[in-house]
């Protein structure tokens, strides 16, 4: 459904992505793990055309596209098939929760307001914010904002949703509500690529785990395999570091 091939990206002489390839099947939940600076955010940003890759391609929903493209029209047509959930939410500050979710429908997809509203209310209700339709972002807690962000991504009915550390800007007590929402989407078969440092989430929810280090994918596979029998020494060390404080039993 989504395949990414040989993505390279440098900032100046900092070679951040050194040939990243992976596949995502329909209904897959791919957890992308890796130390800080390993290029996880950059990878997602290249796939959303927020950055121009130096080389690489992507196939999504039968459409082949060069990730180096500067064509605004092409990037937009691909973005219409994806959605993005940001680390710091990035809700439209000038719009209410409902308007945040509706904008992609009424303006980008020219849907009439009544149908758009119906979809937006359904999406917000699904993430547990059916009572907060008319609240502005500044009136919502971080967890609520992120759930609006997820509803906004869901509403446009994307082929795949990219999440960049959706919970790492949240107070610890709010992490659960957002992870719970993502879990629920996973159970419904939503295709997602989730960059995260939440190991238990990756282990329990993901159908596939990717471990990145130094701009390459070091290891990828089913979570039970990665978490219990990592083949690569670097993966092993990374997991050991992350799991030592973590109630982890093989």
């Amino acid at each position: 459904m989504l395949s990414v091939r040989d993505v390279h990206k440098s900032f100046g002489d900092n070679h951040v992505l050194k040939g990243v390839s992976f596949d995502v099947g329909e209904g897959d939940v791919v957890a992308v793990l890796g130390a800080s600076g390993s290029g996880k955010t950059t990878l997602l940003r290249c796939l959303e055309f927020f950055e121009h890759a130096d080389s690489g391609s992507m196939e999504i929903d039968g459409l082949q596209v060069d990730l180096t493209t500067h064509s605004a029209r092409l990037s937009r047509s691909i973005r219409q098939k994806t959605a993005f959930v940001f680390q710091n939410y990035n809700l439209f500050n000038n719009k209410t929760a409902l308007e945040n979710v509706m904008l992609g429908l009424t303006v980008a997809r020219k849907m009439d307001r009544a149908s758009a509203r119906k979809i937006a209310v359904a999406a917000l209700t699904k993430v547990g914010l059916g009572e907060r339709l008319d609240y502005y972002p500044c009136e919502l807690s971080g967890g609520q904002q992120q759930r609006v962000g997820i509803a906004r991504a869901l509403a446009v009915n994307p082929k795949v949703i990219f999440f960049d550390e959706p919970t790492s800007a949240l107070d610890p007590e709010l992490v659960g509500e957002v992870l719970g929402t993502i879990r629920q989407l996973a159970a419904e078969g939503t295709t997602m690529v989730v960059v995260t440092h939440e190991m238990s989430f990756a282990r329990d929810v993901a159908t596939k785990v990717i471990y990145m280090d130094g701009g390459v994918i070091v290891e990828q596979g089913r979570p039970d395999k990665i978490f219990t029998r990592p083949e690569n020494e670097r993966t092993r060390r990374f997991l050991a570091r992350y799991l030592q404080d973590f109630d982890y039993n093989i």
Partner: peptide, 8 residues
């Protein structure tokens, strides 16, 4: 970026 991400 959020605007672009919803397809605007």
């Amino acid at each position: 970026e959020a605007g672009l991400s919803v397809g605007l």
